[in-house]
Design a protein around this nucleic acid. Structure first.
Lengths: 222, 222
DNA sequence: CGGGCGATTGATTGCCTTCAAACGTGGTGG
DNA sequence: CCACCACGTTTGAAGGCAATCAATCGCCCG
């Protein structure tokens, strides 16, 4: 149930790619590639596009008044980001690793939503998810200690990126710290302690093997 | 532009009251009164209604796994809450003070949104605001110290409740602490320090007079 | 006047940050 | 092919800030 007819057949020049926003709601968008740390959009820029990650990882972030960076979320393959419905972006987005994203004109989405009930519901559903995530994150930041935060992070990212209990983290310790409201050192110490606990193994700093998922879940619940 | 015809004339039993969800979008709802600390709805209950505060104050809150309470937001006159579009409430709501709220059937809102473009936009706008607030709050919790948090809180609530630079707080120190991710004692110390700085005056613990708004704004920016 | 609850204040503890240094790995140029 | 440098990470030591523990205060209401 495509809201916009695919004018160009798929064998044409790779100018458009299909984006599935929600069940029964797809639109065409422009694929773009970004290098590591490349900016996708900046805070305050007009928000003309909405994006979906095809491969790689993206971070959305803001800066607090004292200049410290806060990462709002990491977006992996399939995630939609840049959907705030305002005139301009309230945060910026960068590629964490080499990444492919598809950009969809916001006006196109809005048009679709005003016609198609499925479309409107899909957008609301996305907003709802973002809101739930943001609140969960606020709870984490308000109430949990360093070890618990990192455990939650690993379990979250693990749900998305695991293959056989092994995770290849696309992001640095600095990224993790700015996401969890911790310093690089605190993140590193949390990793080290988990390694000593045999909760995880760390063949390299970006490669995590989950050895004792139960221990992590226990930490999460603390 | 009422989506539901007001069946009962206004001089009848006070069974319905108009709720303005957004510009050009109003529906009828049932007015209810709640006493201080009375539960409006609980976490996990079916979310059949959306509410608007008519008078008084409401808190929405969750409990973290270790049993600590986290207040997501305070809702004052005019605010809409309980809008998460899920099958059941992801948090609970209680009256902070004696409060009047109007309850609107969710099904009614959804019906309205599927017909009226204004309605759908109003709902999206509300979601967007909630999301922006939640993110702002996460930033606060992740990056700010105790004094800054309380300053931000006073400025926020001040924007809503001031009359001539004076605020009558409807909520206790415990509420403020659970909102800001601090203990009662830390909140109290922050208030005391502001009083010593002559940023504020505290004729009584719930009555705040803003003496030096600039000092508070400076703290906020720290 | 007495009881109870919320708020304040003080003393101490504990955790995270800060400051500092060493480690390891990947990439470059000799 | 190896030496060297740069950057991200780890580890250690010290300090700071909020939490915790504890006692007192003040107010409202009986």
């Amino acid at each position: 149930m495509q809201t916009q007819s695919t004018i160009a057949p798929s064998f044409c020049a790779p100018k458009t790619e299909t984006v599935e926003i929600g069940p029964g709601f797809s639109v065409a968008g422009i694929p773009i590639r970004f290098e590591r740390n490349e900016e996708i959009f900046g805070e305050g820029e007009p928000a003309d596009y909405v994006y979906q990650v095809k491969s790689g990882a993206v971070r959305t972030m803001r800066f607090s008044s004292d200049g410290r960076r806060q990462i709002l979320a990491f977006h992996l393959a399939g995630d939609v980001f840049g959907l705030e419905l305002g005139g301009e972006h309230a945060f910026s987005a960068e590629a964490v690793s080499k990444a492919e994203v598809v950009a969809v004109r916001r006006s196109q989405l809005e048009k679709a939503a005003s016609v198609d009930l499925n479309a409107a519901n899909a957008l609301l559903q996305l907003m709802r998810q973002s809101l739930a995530l943001a609140r969960e994150h606020a709870l984490l930041l308000a109430r949990k200690g360093a070890g618990e935060r990192v455990a939650v992070f690993l379990l979250q990212i693990g749900r998305r990126l695991v293959s056989g209990g092994e995770i290849d983290l696309p992001m640095s310790r600095a990224d993790i710290g700015d996401f969890l409201g911790l310093t690089i050192e605190s993140v590193s110490r949390a990793f080290s302690e988990m390694e000593h606990n045999h909760s995880i193994a760390l063949p390299s700093s970006r490669h995590v093997i989950m050895r004792d998922r139960r221990a992590l879940l226990q930490l999460e619940a603390a």
